[in-house]
Simulated assay, not measured.
Amino acid sequence: MKARLVQNGIFTIIDDITQTITQPVSGFYWIDARVEDLSILQPLFHLHDLAVEDCLMEEEQRPKIEIYDSHYFIVMNSIRFDDEEIFLRSLNIFLGKHYIITVTRQKINEIRTLKPILWEEEISAPDYFLYHLIDLVVDNYTIVADRIEAKIEKLEEDILVHTKKSHLHEIIGLRSEILWLKKVLVPQREVLAALNKKELRLISEPLKKYFGDIYENAIKIAETFDTFRDLMGNLREAYQSSVANRANEIMRIFTALTTIFMPLTFITGIYGMNFEYIPGLHWEYGGVAILIFMILVGLTMLLVFRKKDWL
């Protein structure tokens, strides 16, 4: 757990956590905590039992905002796209009048990248801290959406060039992840709508329009994922069509080869009969002549098929 006094974007480390109970002369306190630190923070800041219970739960939390007497409890889902897999990590936020507490189980990139923004913007209020943090969380969804789009385009190109069985597994897996993210975006969008439209005394009125801008971005992201869902359906159709075309191509080749060998089989069948008088049977070069004749018949049929574009 790290406690900092934030004044005009400048951080001052606080060693005594009890000092953060009292409102500072200027600025606010930011406490970056782990889940296990809540046993210390809850009695100090009178954090609501239900909010603390939500933080302690192992399973993934649904994005939401809860309004309590002295503080707000906000849950957002941070997104990561590592090694072609998508991960969601819960970001729990307690917003008070003179403090903000971020509680996480794993490291979240947005918290790390937030610090230079706070310094550049000279932030001195917890609600502005909240705005920049949520803005980064939503922006990361845009970055992930761009990477998913690039992956879809590459998958489409691979399917058109050379279809593999593994492509179907990729399509099914990617479609499942897109649908999963779509379900996450709906409640997250509701949280942003509440921050934009609700009467919240801990969030200054001028800041609400900025939350409205984030809300619009979240809507665009949700629409993008709707498009991705349709594209995955098109990819699956393209895969099935490519597989069918490939099967037809193989059958066409096999049919042509079978057709070529039919007259050759007919010739060998005739010379395999037990008749005493067969043309060329006792000729010294009869076997060679028949072989040459069979090769010429096969090549002639092959050229005819190529000319008619059957092969």
Rank of each mutant, 00 (worst) to 15 (best):
M1R: 08
K2L: 14
I13M: 11
D16W: 12
I17R: 04
T20K: 04
T20M: 05
T22R: 13
P24N: 07
P24K: 04
I31D: 00
L38I: 03
S39A: 12
I40V: 15
P43Q: 08
L44W: 09
H48G: 06
L50I: 11
V52P: 10
V52I: 15
C55Y: 02
L56D: 07
M57C: 13
E60R: 12
E66N: 10
M76D: 02
N77F: 05
R80C: 07
D83I: 09
E85L: 11
I86W: 02
R89C: 05
L91Q: 02
T104K: 07
R105V: 06
K107A: 12
K107T: 13
N109A: 15
R112T: 15
L114P: 01
P116R: 06
E120S: 14
E122D: 11
P126R: 02
I134P: 00
V138I: 13
Y141H: 03
D146A: 07
I148V: 14
E149R: 12
I152E: 00
S166V: 15
I171K: 00
G173M: 08
G173A: 14
L174E: 05
R175W: 09
S176H: 14
E177F: 00
I178D: 00
L179G: 09
W180C: 02
L185G: 01
L195C: 00
N196W: 10
E199R: 09
L200P: 02
R201L: 10
L202Y: 04
L202T: 09
L202H: 06
P206S: 10
L207S: 08
K209C: 07
F211M: 05
G212I: 03
G212L: 03
G212A: 05
D213V: 08
I214T: 10
I214K: 06
A218L: 02
A218W: 00
D226T: 12
R229V: 08
L231N: 06
M232T: 13
L235R: 02
R236D: 04
Q240K: 12
S242A: 15
R246F: 05
A247I: 11
E249D: 12
R252E: 10
R252D: 05
R252F: 01
I253W: 08
T255L: 03
F261T: 11
F261P: 09
M262L: 14
P263S: 12
E276R: 13
L281G: 07
W283T: 15
E284M: 08
E284I: 12
M301C: 10
L302R: 09
V304R: 08
F305D: 12
W310P: 00
L311D: 01
